[in-house]
Amino acid sequence: MEALGINLSVLLTQLISFTVLFLILRKLLFGPISSMLQTRSEKIKESLEAAEKVKNEADESAEKLEKEINIARQEGQKLVQDARDAAENFRQQEMEKAEQESQEIISKANKAIEKERDLAIQSVRKEFSSLVISAATKVVDKSIDEKDHKDLIDKTLKEEINK
């Protein structure tokens, strides 16, 4: 022990000094640094959580936006479809109407034509009967009176027309 220099008073000095160092460091160094590390790690945790929250919110709103866009798109498509349908309907209706009108016009025109024709036939028949009477009169020279003559012609024409 003597050769190694182990000496109780020196040993106690070193032991007490080292214990004092420990006590000082525990107060001076360990407290502040541990609490600093603690607060920093808490702060980092908090900010990470906040970031996570913000990210979630952003995700949520993006989802919502997407949904709304989808709805709007669907609505727009529906509107376009409706408009297209309406236009088609309208066209159909207009076409039908026009056809009807044209049909009416045609039938009206046909009727008018028929009437004209009847009138023309009547007048022609009138002219023609008188013409024939005059011609026959001239030929037979008053072989029959005018009234008999007329009846005969009418009868003939009627037969002729109904043939």
């Binding site: 190694l4 220099g5 182990i6 000496n7 020196v10 040993l11 000095t13 070193q14 032991l15 000094s17 080292f18």
Partner: peptide
């Protein structure tokens, strides 16, 4: 010094 290392 052995005293120091022994103390620690």
């Amino acid at each position: 010094d052995v005293n120091t290392t022994l103390a620690i």
